[in-house]
Design a protein around this nucleic acid. Structure first.
Lengths: 204, 204
DNA sequence: GCAAGACTTGTACGATCGTACAAGGTTGTG
DNA sequence: CACAACCTTGTACGATCGTACAAGTCTTGC
């Protein structure tokens, strides 16, 4: 506890101190996330992370108060990654249902391509089941996704948009989860999402 | 590898050798499952399992060739447990949709009561993502559930019963997953399942 | 140019781990 | 009763872990 700074700023407030772009802290966090994606949370040890990041052991213990802090930082980094991915594909702003389904399918397919990072997402959920700090972060993220989805559904004229949004997201999560252990890619997602949405949308 | 027997029979062929009902092997497996439910797969170490089962360290290494074998046995035990639970609630044999939804909701609520074991289920999925042996077992179980669900939906007159079954199960899994990190229990599952099924069922 | 704080690094300690194994005990069968 | 197979147990080895920390180097504000 005698270390002096550089800790405690896990989410928000990116880099107050020195922080060149290729910051040492970022390199460590990215290495940790890669290790989680490849080998699960168990694979995150100070030594393995340091080796993967190409820094000595002392560096990871300098930037992170404990292993749990390092893991949380890696998951925060993952969430930023996913939000960037969502922004790239384009938010579900289409006012009709087809555009929304297109967005969801594109998102799922892109995630499936980088399957290892998909795994990190569910590692995060399980870790959060026993880490209240991460659970709060995750909850905030999930609720924000529900809100965005509900808005898009409302614009498309859906009844009970929030309930519909939760169903869509649960279906997506269940789908992604089953993709984790399956080799064949199940092409029916698009049709199944359409069927689910048809229960909430007026016409057709 | 110089040990002689009692190994290798993970699934099927319950107890060839001695096997009183309170078998030592079963005690160990149950302790391992409890540890997974409470602390995740990481918590399964030979020493912790032995302590939880009230047996010396040597016992767990005698009955299980390696830590991975022990974990697989624990998950096999979990699957038997879930199948027993399904049988107790009663299979989804009702020929109308309402009975099916009742079954699903009852199942989800009962699972939510023993949240720790719910956690074990998703620990299993993640473990299976990197353990081909367990992945095969899990895949078999999931496909069997899809089959049962599709049969029940077909009896209820659903179109595309297998596709509908997959959507129902994915929705359930996504729902359970979000329950893992949430405290409030979300009472909308029943209505949401009804909405999903209405897209596949003829009348109403 | 010089202190002070920020960063870097190597090394060390105690704990825990998977696994192996030898030495005994128990049990069933001829 | 004897022998073999099965079971039980305690102990040991080498590896890896989280964490602490002292000793350095670099940066920065004055």
């Amino acid at each position: 506890m005698s270390t002096t700074r550089a800790q405690e700023n896990v989410l928000a407030s990116a880099q107050p101190p020195a922080s060149r772009p290729g910051d040492r802290r970022s390199v460590i966090v990215e290495a940790a996330l890669t290790l989680i994606a490849e080998g699960g949370v168990d694979a995150v040890t100070h030594r393995k992370v340091a080796a993967a990041a190409g820094v000595p052991l002392g560096s990871t213990t300098y930037y992170f108060e404990s292993r749990a802090h390092l893991i949380r930082a890696a998951f925060d980094h993952y969430l930023e990654r996913v939000q960037r991915l969502q922004a790239e594909i384009g938010a579900p702003d289409g006012s009709n249902a087809q555009a929304l389904v297109d967005f969801l399918v594109a998102f799922a397919e892109r995630e499936a391509q980088e399957r290892s990072y998909l795994r990190a997402e569910y590692e995060m959920t399980l870790f959060a089941a026993r880490d209240p700090v991460l659970a709060a972060t995750l909850e905030r993220w999930l609720e924000s996704m529900v809100g965005q989805m509900a808005d898009a559904l409302a614009r498309a004229g859906a009844r009970a948009p929030e309930e519909a949004a939760r169903s869509v997201l649960d279906l997506m999560r269940g789908f992604e989860l089953s993709q984790l252990t399956r080799s064949a890619p199940d092409p029916t997602l698009r049709h199944r999402l359409g069927a689910l949405l048809s229960a909430y949308l007026p016409s057709e």
